[in-house]
Nucleic acid binder design. Structure first.
Lengths: 183, 183
DNA sequence: ATTATCTATAGATCTATAGATAATGC
DNA sequence: ATTATCTATAGATCTATAGATAATGC
């Protein structure tokens, strides 16, 4: 009757849908966004592309799941860093960089387009942002500046934009130190 | 006989090739990267797609010209800001942000992939980086950190990643102030 | 002669729908 | 009954090459 709305990501997926997302993720991470087509995805699952549409309304539905996974795992990584080393901006930055560089294609997918906010689990975006906000003592402007710095560093590194001989460790250290000196 | 190599961007383009690049740029800036196809580009010029290949070896050749234009204009904008207000990081940041937000699709094209370094005019990449490096007193690490911050701010803004109510002016100010206090 | 264009076309894709078939679960 | 799959297919594209034709420049 009524079209089912695009479901919220991350919840109430059937086991088969989860398998599809897992295959999509493997495909994306191994071969990049251009390889993530419905046909290739189906091939990797041993089925035909049209069958995917019984599990997801469209390709975007699969991508949204991947974006939600990335946000969830990034939040996880940052929370773990915070737990190990409370209040340490350095620890958060390291966790951020490590996660992003371990999953460059996924990080790009989740980051280089507008967030599909209405399709994401409520609170997920905030949850990913909170550890940094806490490390910034609740200073939203500082937290946003620090996020921009961290995102800029990893995305430029992912795209190979720094000169080959650039000392990125030093640039990270320099930026974090500047952003997190008292007052 | 020998394949002509991909020519360096920005130099020795025929007048017609320049028209093609201008049309490509208008198309990109108005309609985004997905609209920049050889067919659509040809349509806008009133010719057929195959004719384009008499002027450029391939689509990448056209894109490289656009990337070179962006770098050149960004360098120009930063040099002008520097001339108006020597040594001011604030002025450079404002010029950077203004340029990027005025040309978001072009900025993304030039920025969200590896630089085609061998096809760019020699020295162009450096030229775009130099005003910031000078404003950082030659401190390469600080310049890279500041670049990452500025790129992070504009690209996150372009992708609508900040909350709608975020005070981006304040975040810029906060970041720049932190990065440019005497050490 | 050279150059810019054209037509025709190769050769690859894509996403997504419709409707049939087979298998599973009540 | 419901669900997952399949085949067949619509309907759009893409980039790029080959070879013919027309126009321009010596």
């Amino acid at each position: 009757m009524a079209d089912r709305p695009t479901p919220r990501a991350g919840t109430q997926l059937s086991p088969r849908a989860r398998e599809i997302v897992a295959a999509a993720r493997a495909l994306l991470e191994e071969s990049g966004p251009a390889a993530l087509t419905m046909r290739t995805l189906a091939d990797h699952l041993g089925i035909k592309a049209p069958s995917l549409y019984k599990h997801f309304p469209d390709k975007h539905g699969v991508e949204v799941e991947l974006i939600a996974q990335m946000l969830d795992e990034l939040a996880e990584a940052l929370e773990a860093a915070e737990a190990r080393d409370p209040g340490s901006l350095q620890a958060l930055a390291e966790a951020y960089r490590t996660y992003a560089l371990a999953h460059p294609h996924l990080y790009r997918l989740a980051t280089e387009r507008p967030l599909p906010r209405p399709s994401l689990p409520p609170g997920l975006e905030d949850r990913a942002a909170l550890p940094l906000l806490r490390a910034c003592g609740g200073d939203l402007d500082l937290a946003r500046a620090t996020w921009a710095f961290a995102h800029g560093m990893v995305i430029l590194e992912i795209h190979g934009r720094f000169p080959g001989d650039a000392d990125l460790e030093a640039a990270w250290k320099r930026g974090l130190q500047a952003l997190h000196r008292p007052g």
